[in-house]
Design a protein around this nucleic acid. Structure first.
Lengths: 180, 180
DNA sequence: TTAAAGTTTCAATAATTTCTGAAACTTTAA
DNA sequence: TTAAAGTTTCAGAAATTATTGAAACTTTAA
């Protein structure tokens, strides 16, 4: 590995836990993304100096995130791993998977807690706050689930637009009102 | 604490590490959000059964996330803590703070690595991928930095619109083309 | 001043998470 | 069948992270 590749892979390791997995898995993911050729588990183990067992667990985890895919070569029993889809695809998957782990459980707890009437005024306040949080997370979840439907180009133009979306939205509202 | 409040606070603790902090800090944050009255460090320590020192460290951390604020009462030397701003404000802050910790370091590493020419074809491929990642994170960062400027209502209508934004964007493009 | 009320720090310990490597398992070619 | 090539599992060890609590520090009223 050249120094630049090395530094990228090690960086992915350091960031791994912040991105929702751990060091090893971060390194593995980084390595696979910048490798043109698919790699076997043993190659990953060698290049990263990580035990074979650890690689095996990492592969399972990366598969559960839907970030890598297996390939086979004719006349070769080994399994070759490569990233599943484009960088955009992977980013959207990480987004979605993290939403599932970081938001969904809270959403369902809040729904449960909001069901019955408050027992006293302290609880009434608490429930009102839970309602606020619920609405926010709910809106966020809906939005996030729609993102993949938009396709990379539109996503890109949306992001470039930034706060400008606000103006476009206002424009739309005016337009609708005028045609009513 | 009533069972419902209890369950919410404990849930925040369990989710704490997934949200970017740890159990104690998650609990503290949850407790403060659903408490109508500001709380002192000792009250937090009592209600959550957490050592006084731990609460002190948690307060510092929550302040570094800009999620809580201190208040004083006339004739009372104690410090009272309460959430800083609305739920939306807090969500935006968590978003921004996490971007700083999870994206910014990678962005700067990628910029560095992209500067000089590739040493060989393996590195050329790696650099192309890094470029892709950089562009994605860069777009994301710009977009995120614009969000707070939009205000809660517009944000809410944007989220409700979901993939529909795509159509609005197309509409805008057509409109601009027609008027060219 | 000083002592009481309050806060912070940090070394030691507890709890949790990650990693290893050897043993068990699976698949396939001969 | 069987043995070679490959993969997975998991108990224990290592590394990391969180928590406590006592001592040090700060502030203020008397």
């Amino acid at each position: 590995m050249t120094p630049k590749i090395q530094s990228f892979v090690m960086h992915c390791g350091e960031m791994g836990s912040r991105w929702g997995f751990n060091r090893t898995i971060g390194q593995m993911c980084g390595l696979l993304v910048i490798s043109e050729q698919p790699l076997t588990a043993n190659e990953i183990s060698d290049r990263l100096n990580i035990s074979r067992g650890n690689v095996s667990m990492g592969i399972k985890e990366l598969q559960s995130w839907r970030l890598i895919q297996v390939q086979h070569r004719p006349g070769d029993r080994k399994e070759y791993y490569s990233p599943a889809g484009s960088i955009w695809d992977m980013a959207l998957r990480v987004f979605e998977e993290r939403r599932k782990r970081e938001v969904d459980p809270t959403l369902s707890l809040l729904r449960d807690n909001m069901l019955d009437a408050p027992a006293n005024s302290e609880e009434a306040y608490a429930q009102a706050k839970m309602h606020e949080i619920h609405d926010l997370l709910d809106a966020l979840t809906h939005f996030a689930s729609e993102l993949p439907k938009m396709g990379p180009e539109r996503l890109h133009s949306l992001m470039k637009l930034g706060a400008g979306v606000g103006k476009v939205l206002d424009m739309k509202d005016k337009f609708l009102k005028a045609n009513k």
